[in-house]
Write a protein that binds this DNA or RNA. Structure first.
Lengths: 113, 113
DNA sequence: CGTTTATTTCAATATTTCATGTAATATTGA
DNA sequence: TCAATATTACATGAAATATTGAAATAAACG
């Protein structure tokens, strides 16, 4: 992981349709979704979807595989993980006591930070 | 937290200078950095820095306070936390066994995922 | 083969974002 | 108040990104 890849990941999630697409894909783990289903679920044209999936794919945040006539997309969790870890390391490295929240995101304690 | 705020956070981190700025601020917790220091550290003009800090500020990812003649910026950890939690909930909610990585970002185990 | 289905590519246009420099504002101290 | 410092606001043009629809590609099936 490096700055450029991390920024690219952020860019790719910095668009409402792409963000929703990524979240939808996560909800459909581990199967993934066909491009058509995804386009319909998001209410955008196939062409627009391809464009946005391309952005996500270049950021390595989704995988695509063909199955019959369809292309099935799924989120690249390891890459997402790498991005978050990279971003958060700067925080916790220097000040573990100040911002140790990566270790308990779904486990918030009142009075933190 | 909602889609729009989360997307805005992603947008604001989707630029090399803003990304570096945010990370720098995290490394300088809990004190923060003066705008001038930040601009110099990043090697960009004060005017450009203001633009980028504005984007981060609208996304609620940084706080600003005045101290003497300077404005001191610091990262809004709680907002960052909220964004990550929001994004990751979609993943773990439906398939905790598939992607439970938020709970151990700095604690990776071989063979995960 | 020819047709249907699923998706991508491409080109044109519109929109947004970014970088730069200059002017304006706010604070401090002589 | 005047000058110096620190930062922000604004205007401009250039570059990147997004939207749209039509055409192209690829696979499956009769």
């Amino acid at each position: 992981m490096n700055d450029q890849l991390a920024v690219e990941a952020m860019v790719s999630l910095g668009h409402a349709d792409r963000f929703r697409a990524f979240r939808l894909l996560m909800r459909h783990l581990p199967d993934g979704l066909r491009a058509g289903e995804l386009a319909e679920a998001l209410g955008i044209s196939p062409s627009a979807l391809t464009f946005h999936l391309g952005v996500l794919k270049r950021a390595k945040l989704v995988h695509a595989r063909r199955s019959q006539r369809s292309i099935i997309y799924s989120p690249a969790l390891d890459q997402m993980h790498a991005v978050l870890e990279f971003l958060m390391n700067d925080c916790c490295q220097g000040n573990p006591q100040v911002c140790g929240f990566m270790g308990r995101a779904s486990n918030k304690v009142a009075g933190d930070h």
